[in-house]
């Protein structure tokens, strides 16, 4: 947050203490911005596939980008607090006479375990795969849900 200086009348050869304070505040802002960026970038595990986890009142949602995968290529299992996503990405080989200009897409096996912050109900886990994006919805276990307490 940058705060506009109140006393911004130009004064020759004269620095108010507010100038110095403003400068320091600016530097602190920049420093904290950089720190935040660095932390966010480092928060990945280096295991394929990269995932995003979100939560709402009743569920956790785990998403991963898996372009070209079919439901048969995927193996998903869930236990009390963990979700395992494994499978193989297959890139069918083209006929022999092709000449490649670029080959950036990768095929191979993968397996990843995600630990969720709280207990889930493994029986009610649902997964869907649309446009190459996997979405797994994991309902929170009843014991893990916040309970409304009525005052008697």
């Amino acid at each position: 947050m940058r705060i506009r200086r109140m006393f911004n009348t130009p004064v020759w050869g004269w620095k108010t203490p507010f100038d110095e304070l403003d400068r320091m505040r600016g530097q602190l802002d920049k420093f904290s911005e950089e720190l935040e960026k660095g932390l966010l970038q480092r928060r990945w595990s280096g295991v394929f596939p990269l995932i995003n986890v979100t939560e709402d009142k009743d569920n956790y949602q785990v998403r991963a980008e898996l372009p070209g995968l079919k439901t048969d290529d995927l193996d998903i299992s869930a236990t009390g607090k963990t979700l395992t996503v494994s499978g193989e990405r297959k890139i069918p080989s083209e006929s022999k006479e092709v000449n490649y200009h670029r080959r950036e897409r990768e095929a191979g096996k993968f397996s990843r375990i995600v630990t969720l912050p709280n207990q889930i109900d493994p029986a009610k886990v649902e997964a869907s795969l649309t446009d190459g994006v996997l979405t797994v919805v994991l309902p929170k276990a009843e014991s893990a849900k916040p309970r409304q307490i009525t005052i008697s």
Binding site: E65, I91, E94, S95, E97, V98, Y100, E104, R105, V133
Partner: peptide
């Protein structure tokens, strides 16, 4: 998007990974 590009005598084929695009 990451892409594969290959060519035969008749055509050029491009494969690109664009997850989430309808």
């Amino acid at each position: 998007p990451v892409a594969d590009i290959f060519e035969t005598e008749l055509e050029i084929t491009l494969l690109a990974d664009m997850p989430g695009v309808k």
